[in-house]
Each structure stands twice: as C-alpha cells, then as structure tokens.
C-alpha cells in the first residue's frame, strides 16, 4: 500500500494490518521519519513538503516493486505526508513484512534510501529568520549507491 497524504498516520494500526490475517508473516520492520527542530536551519518552526502528485505514486511503487524483486517480502507499506508539518510530527512510514527478519530489514532500508533520492518530494523549512529549501545530501546519494555495488 502506498499513500501520499496531508493527514497523520497511526503506525500501530498499519503494523496490525500487516500482521493480522496473514500467519505467514514472521517479521515486520518499520521506519518512521520525523520533523526535527534542527536541520539545515536552527530552531525550525515549520517544515513544508511539496511533491509532484502525478509522479509520486508511480515513483514510490517502482521502488517497492524493486524491493519485492530483490527480497522475499510479503507486503510493503509506504505512507508519506505532504503539506506543512511541525517539529516532532511524523513525515514518512515504511513498513515491510516478511517470513524472516533479514529480508524485511534490508528491504526497509532499501526503500528509504531510494525514496530519499528518487521520489519527487521537496522540503522547505522556516524559522524566525525566514524560509529556505532543504539541500539534498551527498550522504543520501551514497546510501542509495551502495545497493547497486
């Protein structure tokens, strides 16, 4: 399941849905990304996420499809929020279910590394000094590149 939404999400509910009704699931690995108050700017007051709606779903689905080809996973959930968020708010959830833990650990990391570098989202943060676009990080490109080595 892939969702892009302004609303918050309930991780416990998502994990329950992955677990219930499927006794083949032996492991679930999840990642939640949060808004921090210190990022490119100090004392961030808001973080606004813009995206390319016609492309986002397709890009996220392509990432999940690659993970499914690569590892023996049962199901994958990606929820990414857009709009204006505040420090401590949840931004993104990736949750992967599998029979055994290693596939879920690896696939969860893979999906996040690709999401960071391939999915069309852009962050703009504000503090008392004004607004600025968040810069892409070389470390995110490197994290993605290690999967192709």
């Amino acid at each position: 399941m892939i969702r892009v939404q302004t609303d918050d999400f309930d991780m416990a509910q998502v994990l329950d849905d992955l677990r219930k009704h499927n006794p083949k699931v032996g492991a679930i690995v999840s990642f939640v990304g949060l808004v921090r108050d210190i990022n490119d700017s100090a004392e961030v007051t808001t973080l606004t996420l813009e995206h390319y709606p016609e492309m986002t779903q397709k890009a996220l689905q392509a990432i999940v499809d690659q993970a499914k080809q690569r590892w023996d996973i049962i199901d994958a959930v990606v929820i990414h929020r857009v709009g204006t968020l505040l420090p401590t708010d949840q931004i993104v959830l990736v949750a992967i279910s599998s029979a055994h833990r290693q596939a879920a650990f690896s696939a969860c990391e893979f999906v996040m590394d690709y999401l960071k570098t391939q999915a069309p989202f852009w962050k703009k943060e504000t503090n008392s000094q004004g607004a600025r676009w968040v810069e892409a990080k070389a470390s995110d490109d490197e994290a993605q590149a290690r999967w192709t080595q």
Binding site: M55, W122, K123
Partner: peptide, 24 residues
C-alpha cells in the same frame, strides 16, 4: 519518470524540472 539529461521527449510529452529531491 526520472531521466538523465540525454533522455529524449516527443510531441505531447510532459517534462518536469526540479532540484534534487529531499523527501523522507
């Protein structure tokens, strides 16, 4: 679809330009 700069487009296509992405 994300493409590199050598990619070609055709009449009627939708081309988008954006900075490196910063989601997640």
């Amino acid at each position: 679809n994300l493409v590199d700069d050598l990619a070609t487009f055709e009449d009627g296509d939708e081309v988008a330009f954006f900075p490196p992405v910063t989601g997640g």
